[in-house]
């Protein structure tokens, strides 16, 4: 019924006057911000906007051609999406651009959008001189590799056990684990801190890795995926001679690869960005990770925003690269999780 009406509408020629008024209106509305940017006065812009809107409404009432409407609708959609993208990307752009500016450039008013010299890496050099960013970077990488690898392992093993191994109290145990997810991280911080101090790992990289070697949430996600793999596959493999161990690594893990990649990426991101915990358990400069190092750097360099931006770029860049390379995997993982592939 609705389809029929839509096609009739599409075939409708529309009035020439309506189309003309509508297009003029669009032009007027677009001209308003343009006139502002070109130095026009505010009343002029407002007048243009009002006139444009009036023309647009009049045109709509006179039924412009359907094609014109659908094209302008699409244009509007893209305009909104572009706007959203600009809002998201601008801070990153500003960070990179500022990192390449000199100190005087930073203080221009109105601020300049682009750096004068695109190859001015001086800020990076200074930042790396003022604080051991290379060391922070290495620490971050070590902590990330440690916690992500071990978490992936424990997650896979736990998810498998909760999916395929038969043992007494399996479901109860799993519900118990899930209920622990309700405990906020901030509450665990105190006990974790005490534990770390007692075992003598305070102010060491181990303190950053040890509490993050398993994850209930990721186990839950992976278990859900594992459960969608038919039991027939498991028994086929068992009959074919594989043990649980072989089945897990040769069949289940390859099938769950998209989910696993998503989990690992999310985990890497969380590890890379973690700030609060390092702040608590790390004291010496050489054991700081990037976010923490950046924080202390802020207080040291004070108003030198260009140095701060250079340092920030170094912190953010690896994760941006990681995302760019693994984008397909992330999207596929999320989509697969949704439709139970």
């Amino acid at each position: 019924m609705t389809d029929l009406r839509a096609s009739r509408d599409l075939a409708r020629p529309g009035t020439g006057l309506g189309t003309a008024l509508f297009l003029l209106g669009v032009l007027g509305v677009l001209a308003a911000p343009a006139s502002l940017l070109l130095g026009g006065s505010r009343p002029l812009a407002l007048a243009l906007l009002a006139l444009g809107a009036a023309l647009l409404t009049a045109g709509l009432m006179l039924k412009p051609a359907r094609r014109v409407l659908s094209v302008s609708g699409r244009a509007l959609r893209y305009a909104l999406l572009t706007l959203g993208m600009l809002v998201m990307v601008f801070p990153f752009f500003w960070m990179l651009s500022s990192a390449l500016k000199t100190a005087p450039e930073m203080n221009y008013f109105p601020p300049s959008l682009l750096p004068r010299n695109w190859l001015n890496f001086e800020n990076f050099r200074i930042a790396f001189e003022k604080a051991p960013f290379a060391r922070y970077f290495l620490n971050s990488v070590l902590v990330l590799l440690g916690s992500v690898t071990v978490t992936a392992l424990t997650t896979i093993l736990a998810a498998f056990a909760f999916t395929r191994l038969e043992f007494r109290g399996r479901e109860v145990l799993f519900s118990l684990l899930l209920s622990m997810m309700m405990v906020p991280f901030e509450m665990l911080i105190i006990t974790n801190y005490q534990t770390i101090v007692r075992v003598g790992l305070y102010d060491s990289l181990w303190a950053l890795v040890l509490p993050f070697m398993s994850s209930i949430f990721y186990t839950y996600i992976l278990r859900n995926f594992f459960q969608s793999i038919p039991a027939g596959l498991y028994w086929s493999a068992r009959v074919d001679g594989s043990t649980n161990w072989v089945y897990l690594w040769k069949v289940m893990v390859p099938i769950a690869r998209p989910s696993l990649v998503t989990i690992i990426l999310l985990n890497a991101l969380a590890s890379w960005n973690s700030f609060m915990w390092p702040l608590l358990v790390i004291k010496s400069d050489l054991n700081r990770t990037l976010p923490f190092g950046l924080y202390t750097f802020t207080t040291e360099v004070g108003a030198n925003n260009e140095l701060l931006m250079a340092a920030s770029s170094v912190v953010v860049l690896p994760m941006v690269l990681l995302f760019l390379f693994a984008r397909k995997q992330i999207v596929r993982g999320v989509a697969r999780g949704g439709i139970k592939g």
Partner: peptide, 12 residues
């Protein structure tokens, strides 16, 4: 050797 109703082939 075992053959299931849904064949249970390894999809990957």
């Amino acid at each position: 050797g075992l053959v299931f109703q849904n064949y249970a082939l390894y999809p990957h």
